[in-house]
């Protein structure tokens, strides 16, 4: 599916919308819903995923010619979980509060399908530099969706953004349900619908 003659910039930007991992490929949904009750949690999770995706894509791409096909999935898992442990320990040491609210969702990045999918679909076939570009794009695409969901849920659910009050309680009664699990499903459902709408309209215009 990935055309090989893209420019580096093209590799990065395709992850933002056209092949956005969350909205278009429906990968990595678990974490994008679980940690987005506030913007700051979404940002921390996004950065952690960018780091892990870039590092593991680079390493997978480096070793792609020496790893036999039969054990490649196992190799990827070990590489990815190594970097996830690194990210987890880093958060625990320098941002203990965020690490505590994210809880087991940081170690769960191991089974985030985005990283595995990029390793298998892209990094295993292409040189290091395009692989890194692809990983940055995918990570950034994941992060902006997380931030968008986080922003909607935080504004509607508690009337704040990044902890600052934007909708005062006098004029707006917070919809508590948006901070709770159902709000996450609804927000993502409507967000994907919106992205579908935009891409469909664009396709109709070019035709």
């Amino acid at each position: 599916m990935a055309p090989s003659h893209r420019t580096l910039a093209g590799e990065i930007t395709k992850g933002l919308l056209v092949e956005n991992p969350v909205a278009r490929l429906i990968l990595g949904i678990c974490s994008s819903l679980a940690v987005t009750n506030t913007v700051i949690n979404g940002l921390a999770m996004g950065l952690a995923v960018i780091f892990v995706t870039v590092a593991s894509s680079a390493l997978v791409s480096m070793v792609r010619k020496v790893v036999p096909g039969g054990v490649r999935i196992a190799t990827y898992i070990v590489i990815i979980s190594g970097f996830v442990t690194l990210a987890d320990l880093f958060l625990r040491a320098f941002f203990p509060d965020i690490s505590k609210t994210l809880g087991p969702y940081v170690p769960l990045i191991v089974v985030n399908c985005i990283i595995m999918a990029r390793a298998e679909v892209f990094a295993a076939k292409y040189p290091v530099v395009p692989s890194i570009a692809d990983a940055i794009g995918m990570g950034a695409g994941y992060t902006w969706v997380l931030l968008a969901i986080g922003a909607v849920r935080e504004i509607l659910g508690s009337g704040t953004i990044l902890g600052y009050t934007v909708l005062s309680e006098k004029v707006f009664t917070p919809w508590t349900v948006m901070v709770l699990p159902p709000g996450a499903f609804l927000t993502l459902g409507f967000l994907i619908g919106l992205i579908n709408y935009v891409t469909m309209r664009r396709a109709r215009k070019t035709r």
């Binding site: 499903f185 609804l186 459902g189 994907i192 619908g193």
Partner: peptide, 10 residues
């Protein structure tokens, strides 16, 4: 996917 997510929300 979107309608499935909305159903999951309900």
């Amino acid at each position: 996917a979107p309608i499935t997510l909305l159903m999951a929300g309900m």
